[in-house]
Amino acid sequence: MGCDGGTIPKRHELVKGPKKVEKVDKNAELAAKWKYCALSQERLKRPIVACELGRLYNKDAIIEYLLDKSAERPNTEVVTHIRGVKDVKELNLTDNPAWEGERRNIKGDCYEDMHCTMFICPVVGLEMNGKHRFYYLRTCGCVFSDRALKEVKTEICHKCGDPFKEDDLVVLNGSKEDVEKLQKDLEERRSKAKSAKKSKKSKGAKALKPDDAKGTSDLQKSSFESKPALNVESTNEKPTDAALSGPSGESSKAIKTPAEPATGSKRSIQDMTDKSEIYKSLFTSHSTAKRTKDQLSNWVTHTPYHF
């Protein structure tokens, strides 16, 4: 069958050989990592943040993801370890003076250098294009190349002057081995923080002993029992013998009026000696506010107050 019309098949049409392995363009792969957001696949633009695994993101894309995690996105597996804004660090990047932007080659009639990027190392001037190894600091977010950290060994940030340790260095867009190591360190830090939080909570619970709890309950009970006696003294009505007698049957005359009146007691402002006469005249209980019977009318109410 086949070969109708005088066609002569060739060997590659009849015999299937091994499939060719597709080669990935290294320049395109580096540009995807260092020039585009790992989550939204859009061009990186300030503010730029990095996670604890060294991936680069636009801060707007991370905030949108945290606000609505149920929305469908193409690369959600790269941000599963991000629980909140505290899990990312905003980077303090240094601009590249040789970067002209995207508008310089709008027509596409000139050569475009794929290795020229927006940011460089502030110490040695290497471009952050993926050909050189770069780190960022967890403490301040400044970004430096590996060569700068090796040539100028210090425990103080070259850009902002904040102190840092070797554990604070996180490699940006590292290899598979680097990502696995960072993932392991991240899990260890989170487990330590969780255990420290649990121990702190247990120490707080042990601080309240049973004797202290009993003492507080007795104090609350005594203050509750002494409250009715103070309320009875503060009122103008004559208290009965039953109200004056305490739980032990003794008369409350022994604990009569304290040196200062209790808070919340009803007392006329006119009887207060520490208030001036001008202040007392502002109230309707003052003698100047009261009117005689001749000033009153049977059918007109001058004020809403009746005396």
Rank of each mutant, 00 (worst) to 15 (best):
R133M: 04
S287T: 01
V24M: 02
T292D: 11
K26L: 15
S202N: 15
R291F: 10
S245D: 06
K192Y: 08
K45C: 06
A32L: 04
V49S: 06
R267I: 04
D212E: 13
A254R: 10
Y57Q: 06
C121K: 09
K206H: 09
G6Y: 06
S202F: 15
E52F: 12
I269V: 01
I120S: 00
D212V: 11
D294V: 10
N27H: 05
Y279E: 02
H115W: 14
D25L: 04
P210R: 07
C142E: 03
G101F: 08
H286Y: 01
C160V: 03
R83M: 08
P210M: 03
T240F: 07
K214A: 12
E127G: 02
A289D: 06
K35G: 15
V21D: 01
V85A: 13
N92F: 02
S223Q: 12
S251H: 10
L182T: 07
K150I: 02
S281F: 05
I120T: 02
L66S: 00
A50T: 03
N58E: 08
K209C: 02
K35N: 13
V123F: 00
P304F: 10
F164N: 09
N298D: 11
P9F: 09
I63F: 14
K256A: 15
E277G: 05
F134V: 02
F119P: 05
P163W: 03
K253N: 06
Y111P: 08
F283C: 00
P247E: 14
P247S: 07
Q270W: 00
T240S: 14
D178I: 01
H132N: 03
G84L: 12
K23Y: 10
V15N: 04
D185C: 11
A289H: 01
I8D: 11
I278Y: 01
L208F: 05
N105S: 07
S199N: 15
T117H: 06
K23L: 08
V232C: 13
A242T: 15
Q220A: 14
T235R: 14
V79F: 00
R104E: 12
R43F: 13
F283G: 00
E29V: 05
G174N: 10
E22Y: 05
Y36M: 12
G204E: 12
K45N: 09
K45H: 12
Y279H: 04
D274H: 09
V232P: 09
P228D: 14
C140K: 05
